[in-house]
Computed example of a mutant assay.
Amino acid sequence: MELWSCFYFSFEPLSQVEKMNIFLHIVDLSDPKKIWKFAEDFKQEHKLNVLVNNAGCMVNKRELTEDRLEKNFATNTLGVYILTIALIPVLEKEHDPRVITVSSGGMLVQKLNINDLQSERTAFDGTMVYAQNKRQQVVLTEHWARAHPTIHFSSMHPGWVDTPGVQRSMPGFYSRLKDRLRSAAQGADTVLWLALTPAATAQRSGCFFQDRKPVPTHLPLARTSSSLAEEEKLMEILEELAHRFK
């Protein structure tokens, strides 16, 4: 079972000093029912100003969850979808709400593929499945930005960061480039900038960022653009799957 931590930070004035309360919630983002349960409990206890979708996985062999969902898709796409839509009503109650989804530059090599979301029809390549999930996250961000104009949505590429996940999931890549990878702090820089600064919300909602700047979501001549019909179909499939497990 893949366990991921969700952190909620609450800042409350204490005289002229701000007191920071940190609440730790452990949620398995590959399990839709647990995400729905977490979100319902969260809404009863907390307010929410910023949601950062950062947890994810790259499983290099095709594995199924207890719900018979391919694990990368369940965690990186469906899990992000459910957590976000479940918490949008809470975000919409607050001033200057934001959602940041940590995607990856790997998505630039993928065109949205709605015909094989759970990697059943082709040879399984965990790296490419992960990249496809990250493309799906960018499409989700663009859709949510149009559908919920009171919330500022963004996706971003943190650069290639030296993390245990990269070491485990991409050992060859890590071995070749470990001396040039970013630190965790460097990778988190744009996330924090998007979460906290007025300059971030001066940018159009739905953009894809790298190093604090909006960048294209498609490489020149890459033919990775998808049609509106394909993107709407992705949303329909995710909505149906999400509510199947609610």
Rank of each mutant, 00 (worst) to 15 (best):
W4Y: 00
F9K: 12
Q16H: 07
D31V: 10
K33M: 07
Q44S: 07
Q44D: 03
L48W: 08
L64R: 10
E70I: 10
N72D: 11
A74P: 01
T75V: 14
V80E: 02
I82S: 04
K93D: 02
T101E: 06
V102R: 10
G106Q: 14
G106N: 14
K111F: 01
Q118F: 09
E120L: 09
R121W: 03
T122D: 12
G126A: 12
M128L: 15
V129I: 13
Q132V: 11
N133M: 09
K134T: 14
V138D: 11
L140W: 06
L140N: 05
T141V: 14
W144Y: 05
A145S: 06
R146P: 01
A147S: 08
T150Y: 00
S154F: 10
S155W: 11
S155K: 13
V161E: 04
T163K: 08
Q167C: 00
R168S: 15
P171I: 15
L177M: 11
K178S: 08
R182C: 01
S183I: 09
A185I: 09
Q186K: 07
Q186G: 03
T190I: 08
A195N: 03
L196R: 11
C207H: 07
V215H: 02
T224A: 04
A229C: 02
E232W: 08
L234R: 13
L238G: 10
L241Y: 09
F245Y: 15
F245G: 03
